[in-house]
Nucleic acid binder design. Structure first.
Lengths: 187, 187
DNA sequence: AAAGGCATGTAAGGTGTTACATGATTGT
DNA sequence: ACAATCATGTAACACCTTACATGCCTTT
């Protein structure tokens, strides 16, 4: 049994990008700089160490070019184990607590999903996401009622911020349903 | 000139909560456990060290009860410096990059805002938030067009995830405007 | 007198951030 | 020859997470 340690979102993002096409660390840095993938700063200082970790764990394989020089160039590609890890990550159930604590991570999974899943499976994921989100909304509504009933030292803007949170998840649920139809109708 | 080091969101959250009412570390732990404030796990292992840091920097003051025993109890309240820090944090302009990288932090600022600002100032903040969000949406739309035009190795779900991001900021802009009216109409 | 909630803390480990350092290649 | 860009890496630092340890107080 391989070590079950889970990866960070950054590591999964790298794995997912390399899975789309083999890349060097520098190219991956550029992608993070120029595209809104995740909300990381993601400078070389985090990316190269992450790539090295992934290589050490055997999820990524590096083909070394310019080998003789002191500044070799490494082109990464995803190994079997890496693809397996990615698939497990992408297909994991959408847990309510995970959704609450790490919505970015859930969307990251979705973004890399179509390298692994059939449209029908993607639709199922979106349906599950929509359901879990509804559960979360119910929780937040309960909390909203509680702080309204007991007029605590809870501030006005505090309540309004909570309402934003709720509207935010409503938007997620709407998007998930809309997108599920889109994907389904493309066959 | 006092050290300008900025605090973490957790530290600001603690400062803001203690500003609403003096609290012990344990009570603050309970608040994080039972309410959807921020998306932290926020167990004792992060809260107590954070409180100690804030005390060391003179932003929080602890009144010690049960002093003679080996397990004293500390009730925290916010110092002048602490209130000043909070006010500066809350009233800082809404920067586009900050909004993109740390939306939670911006909403946290809003949640603690009414301890410091008049309704009119809160409305101004929301207006600024709405404008900055529109800028961000424009950026994301540009990026969306780019990846549509150049049909790269960009995946279908990747594009859909980007669309979620855009819808998400649209929802934020809507909320900001709606909430601005609400606050304005309450005088 | 035992249980459970109140209350505070430490230690190990991993990760992200910033800033810095360095070498290779390409274009002008 | 020089600058810009390609390309990789390290070091210091701070923070969060998890797990663990400990003691006080109230209720039964």
């Amino acid at each position: 049994m391989v070590s079950k340690r889970t990866l960070t979102n950054l590591e999964y993002a790298l794995l997912g990008l390399v899975n789309q096409a083999p890349q060097t660390g520098y190219q991956l840095c550029k992608i993070f700089e120029t595209s809104p993938i995740g909300h990381y700063s993601s400078s070389p200082g985090s990316i190269y160490p992450a790539l090295n970790r992934l290589e050490k764990r055997g999820l990524l394989h590096a083909r070394v070019e310019r080998q003789s020089t002191m500044r070799p160039r490494r082109v990464f590609s995803v190994s079997q184990d890496g693809r397996h890890s990615l698939r497990e990550w992408v297909t994991a159930p959408v847990d309510k607590n995970v959704l609450f604590r790490d919505e970015d991570g859930v969307m990251l999974r979705f973004a890399f999903m179509d390298a692994f899943l059939q449209p029908a499976e993607t639709v199922a994921f979106l349906q599950q996401l929509s359901d879990t989100t509804s559960d979360l909304i119910a929780d937040l509504n309960r909390h909203h009622q509680e702080i309204s009933r007991a007029s605590e030292a809870h501030t006005a803007t505090g309540t309004l911020a909570l309402e934003y949170g709720i509207s935010s998840y409503r938007n997620l649920a709407r998007w998930a349903k809309r997108t599920a139809s889109k994907v389904a109708n493309k066959n």
